[in-house]
Structure formats: C-alpha cells, structure tokens
Design a protein around this nucleic acid. Structure first.
Length: 560
RNA sequence: CGGGGCGUGGCGCAGCCUGGUAGCGCACUCGAUUUGGGGUCGAGAGGCCGCCGGUUCGAAUCCGGCCGCCCCGACCA
C-alpha cells in the first residue's frame, strides 16, 4: 500500500554526469539507488523492493531443492583464511580489532561454512547438506564500475553443499542447475548457462549464469546447442589460404615491420598465414614460445589451463637473450619449447627470422621446427561449431556454480567417517547469485528511451495508479476508490497521489517501469473506461470501469 | 597498477586560459493560475567554489601537495 505523496522516491530528469551504463543511469534517475562512495550504494525504498522480490524468488527455489537458510557473519577471524591460503587475495579486506587480532571482511563464506561442517559433521550419516544464506560480501575491487554492476559491497546468496563423494556432489550440482535455471526464468531475464573457468576457486567444474547486455563485462560464445564463456570456449577456426611450404625457409627482408598486419600486407598474404609468437615465462617450465595464427589471439586462461601452471609474459631481455630480437622472433632454430595452437594447419607460414628486420617464408610446423600442440587461442566471431557459426555476446555474470571438491574441506579439516571407519574429506560445492546484478541486468535488457520496463516478477510494484486532477475532485475520489478495489485483488499497487501535473506523473511512471499504468482523470469518468498502459511496448488499452480491478489483475497475469 | 578526465547550491553545467561583484537551467519555498504528457506568471531561499599550503593588496581562477569520484585497460572468489 503505497502512496507516492509521502514516499521516498527521488527521481531525476538528468542522469549522473559520469554514468555510462544504462542501468546505472536509470536506477539512479528512477530513485532506486544512490551512491555513497566508490562501489558503495544505498538501495532506496523502491529499489529495495526490487531487490527483495528477487531475494524471495531465489529463496523459494533454494528451499525447493532442500536448501536450509542460515546466516554467517561478515567479519571473520583471519585464521581460517590463512589456512586456505586465501588471505593472499588482494581483493580481501583485512583489518585488526582493538586487541590487534587480524580480521578479514568476508568476500564469500567457504571458510566459515566449512568450519561449521568440520565442527559438526562426524559421520557419513550426517551428509549430504545444502546450506545457504543471503549476506553482504566485501571486496576491495580495483575498479568498481557501472552503478551496482560491480561494487565493493553487495548482497549475495551463497550456498554450499556437503557430500561424501563426487557422485553426491554431482547430484547436488544438478539440483542447483535446475534451481538456478528456474530463478532466472522466474525473474524474467534473458539468460544463458555457460561452461566456465574454475578460476582461483579451484575445483572440478563450473558454470556461469550470464545475462546478455551492453554493459556486460564478460563475453559468451554461442552456437546452437553450445554456450561457453569465451574464457574457455573452443571452436573450429575459419579456414585460411596458405601458400605451400618450402623445402627450406626463405629469408625475406621486412625492415621495421613488427606487427602481423604489416608483415602480412607487405608480403601479400592473409594475416592467418603469419605465425604470431607469444613468449611466456612459466613458473616451472621456464621460457616457452607460444604460436597462434596471425589472425588469432592467445587466450591466457586456456593457456594457463593447458600448462597447468602459472605464467607471465616474458620480458624483452629474456626474449632477446634466448630467442631473438623482439618483433622478429620465430620458432625456427630456437632452443625453447614451442606450443603450437591447434588452429595452425599444414602449409607454408611466415614467421619471425630471429634476426632484425627479417622474416622467414614457407615455414612448416614439424618440418622446420618441433612443437607440442594445444588449444590456446581465443575463439573469434565466425568460427564454427558443427558447421554453425558462433557469435560472441557481452553479458553480465549474475550467478555461478562451482564443484569445489575438497579445496576447502582439506585445509580446514572437514572430514567424516565412512562405513569402514575411514576418515574422508567432505566433497563440497558452492553456488552464488547476485540479486543486485539480476536487477541491473533486467534494467539493461528491457529499458527503452522512456526508462525502465521491469519483468513483472521483480517490479517494485505490480501496478501504478496515476490520479490526475486536484485533490478533492471527483476524479481523485474515483482514483481512491479504485485504489481500494485494486488492493483487494492482491496486487501490489503504487498510487501516484502527488499534487503534480500529468506530464510529470506519466514521465515518472515510465521511468520507474512498473508493468501496468492506470490513469484516472476526468476522461475516465466521462467515458466509463479506464486507460491501461502496458509499460513494455507502451501499448494502451481500455477496460470498463465496472469490474476494472479484476480485469487489470487478469491482464497483469498475461505479462512477461 | 598503467592511461585519460572531473570536483563550483539537491541535479546538470558555465566561469578558470587573461586573479577583483560567484552565474545559468532544472529542482526547492511562498502566492496566483493550470491538471491527459515534465505548463505559465510573480516573489524568494540556498554555495568552506573538494581539502591543506603557497604566490598576491586580493585566489573558484595561478603554483605545490593531498583527498575524492568517473571512464578505458590490466585485474575480477
């Protein structure tokens, strides 16, 4: 029951000057959020209603798969974070209490929830469990951006599963996939579930839930029956016309030409006929020369996963000493292991000659240099999968699910005894979803030039009733009456009873994005018809005033 | 962390180069008028010009330092 006359809904005509993302601009303009500091946001009453609606959907779906809601603190002793090694993460806020004890602010809750399991789980009979909570996360982000899309403090629903073995984890993981699919479907988002990198969390498998939109920070590779984060995606490369290999590589002068484009143009071959050399220094194996086609890029995440160890780009002095002059390096005749991307086929390639201002022509992998093969390139728009071209979309990550395995249970001593009396590590999974990002993604996906257009499931209200005319008029009395009748349908109604002009009320209603807008004015009385605007698409309809409330409720149920 | 930019009433901006009275639009208050697309007229209130220091008779303006915020990139359990 909301009357705007007294509601804290500070709308703005102009967006913040420094805002770029649509959701940032509109959520501020519509009076949903306000900035407190870099990456720190308050949710104003209408915005919080959206957040709470999303939270409730998430809660219902978690409970449906047997999740048990609890609450863990934000402020933690540093000790468990030392044990898992995550104390070293730069994004982790660290502080001391008045006694000088080291503390951290939780960026997620694996450590604490695992400690609880370690304390209380004794036997295989105590498993499995799904525990979750909605709690604030604190992350010292290097660069907060785009309103609530990337913040230093946010609420996340994080769930943790505890199982006796991989099969149990797989089962719980599958349950979370169904729960997450349902959550996003119910929220009305356009979304994809994509395979993803396991990242710093370690583990044995992961998916991300992605909502495509312009302000997204992630990229998703899509093809019929395929969806993967670009971080790990693989595809069939576009073919390239290659000159034949030569018996012996031919030295060609390329003075000052250090980029693939320059070399290819100068020699009259496509970019893909040049081999791009990417020297890296791996932690264990040392210097390695990675080669990809000139029209491709190295994907560092795939490369790291292939190497199974960390690496950094080699320094110029390391390159000059072991390989050749930077800008003209290549695989022929060097004493460095070579990792050749799978997209490099048979034919005569152009490579650096390892001497200044020269390249080699007609170089064939295998014949002229030894190599180890691996898929380490970033997929590109136009690559194919089973004959279908892939497309790449930007998206924001709204949720993710991980098979953790024993990454946390081992260091924190979360074990159980099996039937044979053997001590076993608990097998865990973790599952996160961010209501704020879901809200922002919905704004991004459905906004138009007039403002926000909420999916009905997460709108701050179901119906906005605009009362025109001055206080005390007949039309206002009608609006009041209608307000009461609408309440009775069970819908959540916001009533614009402010003493403001019609233009301002219409503009604010469309900015706020409630799915249905009802207008009550003199015309309504004269015609006996109530005007209903469907926010998405701005289609206008009339319903008879008599029985209007149930008719509106019926219409509302048909909306996306 | 690298690059770029910005801090002036609540919001959006001008003024700064070339030192001297802080200004505009919207919002706000009061009165009148207006009520189906941000209407009109009149009268008002509101500003440590981010902070500290320096130069100067005088600093929003010039110089130095600091802080904050944004954008691009790197990074992102």
């Amino acid at each position: 029951m909301t009357r705007l006359d007294r509601y804290f809904l500070p709308t703005e005509k102009q967006p913040p000057s420094d805002a770029e993302a649509i959701s940032h601009k509109l959520m501020v303009r519509a009076g949903l959020i306000r900035q407190v500091g870099s990456g720190l946001w308050s949710w104003l009453p209408a915005g919080w209603r959206v957040h709470q609606r999303i939270v409730q959907i998430v809660r219902e779906e978690m409970d449906r798969i047997g999740g048990q809601e609890m609450l863990m603190p934000v402020l933690h002793p540093a000790e468990p974070w030392r044990r898992t090694g995550r104390i070293a993460i730069d994004e982790l806020f660290k502080l001391q209490d008045r006694k000088g004890a080291d503390m951290v602010l939780a960026m997620t809750h694996e450590e604490i929830v695992t400690l609880h399991a370690a304390q209380s789980v004794r036997s295989y009979r105590d498993l499995q469990k799904i525990l979750y909570h909605f709690q604030v996360k604190e992350r010292d982000e290097p660069r907060p951006r785009a309103g609530v899309l990337r913040t230093r403090e946010f609420i996340m629903k994080d769930a943790y599963t505890f199982d006796r073995d991989q099969a149990g984890l797989d089962e719980n993981y599958a349950k979370h996939i169904t729960a997450y699919d349902r959550m996003l479907e119910r929220c009305g988002l356009e979304w994809y579930r994509v395979e993803s990198d396991v990242g710093m969390m370690g583990g044995t498998g992961a998916h991300e839930y992605m909502a495509p939109c312009a302000a997204g920070e992630n990229e998703v590779a899509l093809a019929p029956g395929y969806a993967a984060s670009v971080e790990i995606a693989s595809a069939t490369p576009q073919p390239v016309d290659l000159p034949p290999p030569l018996d012996e590589p031919e030295l060609v002068p390329t003075p000052g030409l250090t980029t693939v484009e320059e070399v290819a143009r100068s020699l009259g071959v496509p970019d893909g006929a040049v081999l791009k050399a990417y020297p890296i220094m791996a932690v264990d194996r040392g210097l390695i020369l990675v080669l990809v086609r000139g029209d491709h890029r190295v994907n560092e995440i795939k490369l790291r996963n292939q190497l199974k160890e960390d690496f950094r780009p080699a320094r110029e002095d390391e390159i000059a000493e072991r390989i050749g002059p930077p800008g003209f390096i290549g695989p022929v005749g060097v004493d460095v292991p070579i990792l050749l991307d799978e997209a490099v086929g048979d034919g005569g390639y152009i490579t650096g000659a390892n001497r200044p201002d020269h390249h080699l022509r007609g170089v064939e992998p295998g014949r002229h240099f030894p190599f180890e093969r691996a898929d380490v390139r970033r997929v590109e728009e136009g690559d194919t999968l089973a004959g279908h071209p892939i497309r790449i979309e930007t998206a924001i990550e709204v949720g993710n699910i991980f098979k953790l395995g024993t990454r946390y249970s081992e260091p924190l001593g979360a074990t159980y005894l099996d039937e044979k009396g053997q001590t076993q590590a608990i097998v865990m999974g973790s599952y996160g979803i961010g209501p704020a990002r879901i809200a922002a993604a919905a704004v991004e996906q459905f906004a138009d030039e007039r403002g926000i257009s909420w999916p009905r499931a997460i709108a701050p209200w179901d119906v906005e009733l605009v009362g025109l005319g001055r206080y005390g008029t007949e039309e206002r009395a009608l609006a009041e009456r209608l307000y009461e009748e609408l309440q009775a349908t069970g819908l959540e109604i916001v009533y614009d009873d402010r003493d403001a002009g019609p233009g301002e009320k219409f503009a604010d209603a469309e900015l706020l994005g409630v799915p249905l807008r009802l207008t009550v004015g003199k015309r309504t009385i004269a015609s006996g018809e109530l005007e209903v605007q469907i926010r998405r698409g701005q289609e206008t309809r009339s319903v008879p005033l008599e029985g209007a409330a149930p008719a509106v409720a019926e219409l509302w149920r048909t909306l996306p």
